[in-house]
Every structure is written in C-alpha cells, then in structure tokens.
Amino acid sequence: MNTEQRQQLLAIARQSIQHGLQDGRPSSVNAQDYDKSLQQPGASFVTLNVHAQLRGCIGSLEAWRPLVVDVAENAYAAAFRDPRFPPLNESEYPQLEYHISLLNPAEPIQFTRESDLLAQLRPYVDGLILEDHGHRGTFLPAVWESLPDPEQFWQQLKLKAGLPADYWSDTLKVSRYTVEEFG
C-alpha cells in the first residue's frame, strides 16, 4: 500500500464509525469508487485505541470482500460490536486512534508437539490462528508487544480461544500470517 491508499483506508474507517454514531450502521462503500488495488478482496483488522488503551478490535482472517468494504465493516464492528466493550459513544469519537492491519494469507504450521510449535514462532512477525474442536482464536503480530515470550503468547491465545492454558490435542491446527500495519 502506498501512502495515499493507506490514508484512504484510514479515512474510510473514520467515516464508517462516524456514520455509525449518526445512523447506527456502517457507511456503505462503493468499491468501484476506489483504486483497483483497494477493490480487490482483502482481509483486515481495525484496532481502535483511546489514550493508548484498547477500545475495540475486529477483523477478517480471510479475504472474501473488497478491501475497502472490509475496512469499513470492521471499523464499525470494532467501535460498536466488540463484545469486550460497550458501543462507542460520541464523546469517545474525537479521541480514537486508528490502526489498520492488512493480513497476508495464513499458512499452516507443521508440528508434532508443543515445543516444536514454540520453536517455530517468530516473535513480532507472526500473527497466529489456533483452531481445535470448534474453538478458534487469533492474535495479531502487535500482541507480541504485550506478550513477548512465545510460551506466554501461546498460552494466552489458547485462553482467548476458550481453551485452558495447558491445553494440548493432536488435532490442534495453527496457522501463521503476517500483516502490513499502519495508523
């Protein structure tokens, strides 16, 4: 993404949240109004902070709709549908800090035991997706900032997915992805 495209995506995120405050739904985005690269299917996460504290984070793990639409929908969802927070209110809007992560396609990690998996993790580079028996969770690479130890990162991801920190299963699937992040 070049600087102009990044600025357009950040503007789309802001507009979608502002529209949500006024009309209770995300702004509708016509992908055809944007550069071809922004019309392509893309997977994004929109993270919102207020005073450097997380205020919402929602995204898509797979590219299935135009990137501009994905950013608009995820920005709205981060502000109003993140179950960890109450819906955003008008007084918080001017204080929002926006961060957009564009996900590259996830790749499965091959491993036979937990120590093997941990040895393959790339701190500050990898985002992870954990899946097993209907449980699923992901951490963006930015989470390494608060959980720099691979074992802690892995345990907290299991907890986020609704599994015990010491959970292990031979059917466990883990994929990694990288992101382009800006905000």
Rank of each mutant, 00 (worst) to 15 (best):
Q5G: 02
Q5Y: 08
Q7G: 01
Q7A: 11
I12V: 08
A13C: 06
G20P: 01
D23W: 12
S27E: 15
V29N: 07
D35E: 14
K36I: 10
L38H: 05
L38Y: 01
A43Y: 02
S44H: 06
T47P: 10
T47G: 10
L48F: 07
V50C: 15
H51D: 15
Q53Y: 05
C57H: 09
C57W: 09
I58D: 04
I58N: 07
S60D: 14
L61A: 09
L61V: 15
W64N: 14
W64A: 13
R65W: 01
P66E: 08
L67Y: 09
V71L: 13
E73F: 00
N74G: 09
A78F: 10
A79Y: 00
D82K: 00
D82T: 00
P87A: 13
N89K: 00
S91A: 10
S101F: 01
N104M: 13
P105H: 02
P105T: 06
A106I: 01
I109T: 05
R113K: 10
E114N: 12
E114A: 03
L117Q: 03
L118T: 07
L118Q: 12
R122D: 06
P123L: 08
P123A: 05
Y124I: 00
G127V: 02
G127S: 03
I129P: 02
I129S: 02
L130R: 07
T138L: 14
L140D: 12
P141C: 07
V143Q: 05
W144Q: 06
L147V: 01
P148L: 08
D149C: 02
P150V: 12
P150H: 06
E151D: 11
Q152P: 01
Q152W: 12
Q155K: 15
L157W: 06
A161S: 15
L163F: 13
L163V: 15
L163W: 06
A165W: 08
A165K: 14
Y167G: 03
Y167A: 06
W168N: 12
W168C: 09
W168T: 10
R176P: 06
T178A: 04
F182L: 03
